[in-house]
Amino acid sequence: MSYALRTSLLIGPLLLFLGVCYFLPFLGIVGWSVTLPEPGLTQYHSALSDPLVHSVVLRTLRICLAVTLVSVVAAYVIALVWVRGTPIQRLLVELCILIPFWISVLTRAFGWLALLSNRGLINEWLQAIGIISAPLTLVRNEFGVIVGMAHFLIPFAVFPLAAAMRNVDERALLAARGMGARRSRVFWQVFVPMTGPGIIGAALIVFVFALGFFVTPAILGGGRSVMLAELIYLRIFQSPNWGLAAAISVLLMTGVGMFLVALLKSIAPRTDR
């Protein structure tokens, strides 16, 4: 059996699965987008000219960027403790990363609702202590959505960051100190840049994940901070316009795809240099 044949036999089932379960349905969506309610590109035209879609796209990008920033910064600190902390700190961090994986997105979103709502724990406590007199609006807005999404996505950012930190040559840090650099300079000018590929990887994972988020923004946004995925859902189930929903889906897919290709291309030449 030739090498090419053996490889294709091994990879074949995966390609078949992806083709049947993802690519064919996607073609179906593309089909809807150009045939419902009538053949043509009218749905794309209305998707691209609809001010509602525009504002949702802008809000989605804004929320996703904020979530990416918050998640990567938080994950960087967590990964730093995980990689360079004492054994007990490491164990604690490991537990804090693993436990959220056992709890569903839905449960966590409702958990945040219980914590952040007007009559939730945080507002009750702050009022009880007397720091605030009226409850803060922590949920049913973009703030709540960002908190909930970042909480879900932080662990996904920790892994690439921790891997990058483990690859940092300890001696380069010692060398920087030996040349008179104080710890803060060693951290910002040597350690952080050396983990750069990990930061890009983590940001990419979080951002792409965040673009398609549905459950968390739907619950914590309370219908006011609608993101793209929720808009598609609304166009299918509440004001049925499947053609428009399909067109937005195809645009989202294409946008994410192009974004990924551009990023991979910008990273690729640096890795083989």
Binding site: R171, A172, A175, M179, G196
Partner: peptide, 13 residues
């Protein structure tokens, strides 16, 4: 002091 480490410890970035 100047220090030259085994493996040179240059800054790759």
């Amino acid at each position: 002091f100047g220090m030259m480490f085994q493996g040179y410890a240059l800054f790759p970035h």
